[in-house]
Design a protein around this nucleic acid. Sequence first.
DNA 1: CAGCATCCGGGTTGATACTG
DNA 2: CAGTATCAACCCGGATGCTG
Lengths: 122, 122
Amino acid sequence: MADTSTGNVLSANCPSRAALEVVGSKWALLIVPLLARQPLRNNELLRQVGGISQKMMTQTLRELERHGLVQRTDHQTVPPHVDYQLTELGRSLSEALVVVDRWAERHYPAVASARMAFDRRR
Amino acid sequence: MADTSTGNVLSANCPSRAALEVVGSKWALLIVPLLARQPLRNNELLRQVGGISQKMMTQTLRELERHGLVQRTDHQTVPPHVDYQLTELGRSLSEALVVVDRWAERHYPAVASARMAFDRRR
DNA sequence: CAGCATCCGGGTTGATACTG
DNA sequence: CAGTATCAACCCGGATGCTG
């Protein structure tokens, strides 16, 4: 809904905001970089990402597929063999996320100590 | 970080993962870029970000402060005047987020059409 | 192996009212 | 203006069991 009355810079339907929802997902942020390295199967993803349930994995992958970031390929075999890889669009996103990842790695110590200092204060 | 016992690439206590949680927050992704342009007060933030409640605003700002990304300044006046600005750390993050924001803007049409195509299929 | 259906407990969020 | 308190609603996400 367009919000011309309040002068919002970021109204609820702001285009980029919709796209950002994908990024806002906790797991998508972890899965996309993984797939950037190579296509993976469901089980491999489950193993490489710690602490995610099968349910959330499927859910997240569907969402990524829905947004055109991931390509799902069912090889139609028995037993089933399905793998996931980034689309062109997904690869372009992963390049942007790499920057964030690098930030996280480089600045993790600063974030951690800030948090500890803050918590000690309370 | 490596988890030698399970072979996880991304174990639950991976350092960068902790830092990524900040980014994973729906609202932080919107607030940080806003503050990158200029310091803002509580009410201004509420106005500029559409659809966020006072509660979530306070909560998110506290979290950002806790992680050393935002500096809260209480001018100790009546009526109250408090403003928020990015710290050095926060500015460095915002630079990384700018890349993601640009991605969102540029690729929003592709994401949107992918979603519509996918949904039509169901 | 991939993944859906179901149940359900707990954390998150919004609405409202109130304080300094 | 900035923020807290409280409560109820909601949805996320895990666990389990089952199917092709």
